[in-house]
Design a binder for these strands. Structure first.
Lengths: 234, 234
DNA sequence: AAGTGGAGTTTTGTATACGAAAACCACTCT
DNA sequence: AGAGTGGTTTTCGTATACAAAACTCCACTT
């Protein structure tokens, strides 16, 4: 009666259709075309993507689970605005997880992987040189995700994906633009270590890369929250 | 016009209403009343919880994001059946993340926290002695989550929550019941280390606790998947 | 002039309707 | 008997309808 198959093969045949609202908004956030706090009305999104509110709703809920959108009952959705606290936590989590994925990737990396990542790095460099800020940031994020993929840890990879996406919002809010050039070099060095199958070096470079980004964030002295009467009187 | 407040205070006033389908099914999975592979038809769930399919659908999607339910296009939902590979990954992730939360919890633990956790441990022991398997497993999972909460890392805590929930399915599929008694003692030892504010000890105990559980899993030599003609012929 | 109240508008939350895909089942034919 | 087949039934995916909540804006009061 019940069919206890662990479907893995058939998956590829029936590509689960992705939600266009989710994809579009996620991409826009990655590329910083949607600033934190932007209101996302269901009807409007439905028109934009040519789907009904049913689909919009599903996409928004998905985005909310990924902490990219904040959903409040009866009040609709807006692009999330990670607090300084949340920003710190996201980077602490990345500093815990990604050195591990970098290490594992260094152990497993094949020549083909190395080639692919080198091409990716090149593209990233070009985007930076062309000052295509959005594209550069997105590619930079993808680099971290690719590493987790090479590491072959689907589970950690998903966490990294989420953390990278949230990082785009954090950078939009708290990045103090002193230097930007670091990134590309950092990535190239990490890649070199991985291509040499040097786990220790890859792990350590990844850690300092993340610490470096983290330390570049500047949290405004007072959180961007207006005084809230209610909370002051209770 | 736009209101850029980072809502944190008002949240408590308007408690976001939780989805009853999500809550019910998650709990049932935690307590192993729903075996992996169980079919979850939308209409049926709607009747059970007295809501329309709209709500059921939202709940199932949420569960699917948490990897507790597997959703296939046009074929409905079933309780997920983590593969051996996935099971390994989940525990590897836990072995990476939870020693950190245990360490952090040990640093931050207050007397009140310690008291709360001791009560929790007691309850866990009682459930075990009463052979209330489901309750014991749920409480055991909650212990790990409580630790992440004490560590004050909301972000990592969410990851732990997800991993703990998935672990319930993994245990249902792959647990070789040799000893069960370990758990309660392990938790008490970890708690002791944390109450003594001994981060090194807490971290190390947590790590070996997880490795211990992980090593108790027995993956059937062949995965519980029936031969799939289609995939063999393409 | 600033604050208050309330009608009208917009937007959200949920149920329902309907076409389409899959599952089921009885039946036939080899 | 068992595999194939056609029609029926169930279940899913999406759009839509409708009620309730929130928001807007303007007239009114103090």
């Amino acid at each position: 009666m019940d069919d206890y198959r662990q479907h893995t093969a058939e998956e590829t045949a029936h590509p689960e259709p992705r939600n266009p609202v989710f994809e579009g908004i996620e991409r826009a956030i990655h590329e910083q075309r949607l600033p934190p706090g932007t209101r996302l009305a269901e009807g409007e999104l439905g028109e934009i993507y040519g789907v009904s509110r049913t689909i919009v709703r599903a996409g928004l809920q998905e985005l909310s689970h990924a902490h990219l959108v904040s959903l409040r009952h009866n009040r609709g959705a807006r692009v999330a605005q990670p607090s300084p606290q949340e920003a710190r936590e996201v980077f602490e989590a990345r500093e815990l997880i990604e050195p591990r994925t970098a290490r594992e990737a260094a152990r497993r990396m094949t020549a083909a992987d190395a080639k692919r990542l080198r091409a990716h790095c090149e593209e990233e460099k070009r985007a930076l040189e062309a000052s295509d800020h959005g594209r550069a940031l997105r590619l930079s994020g993808r680099f971290h995700i690719e590493i987790a993929t090479v590491a072959g840890q689907q589970t950690l990879c998903e966490f990294v994906e989420q953390l990278v996406a949230r990082s785009a919002l954090i950078i939009a809010l708290y990045w103090s633009r002193e230097r930007v050039r670091c990134d590309s070099n950092c990535h190239q060095n990490i890649l070199k270590a991985m291509a040499n199958n040097d786990p220790d070096e890859a792990e350590s470079l990844m850690r300092s890369h993340l610490v470096d980004i983290h330390s570049t964030l500047r949290f405004a002295d007072e959180p961007a929250t207006k005084p809230d009467l209610r909370s002051m009187l209770t």
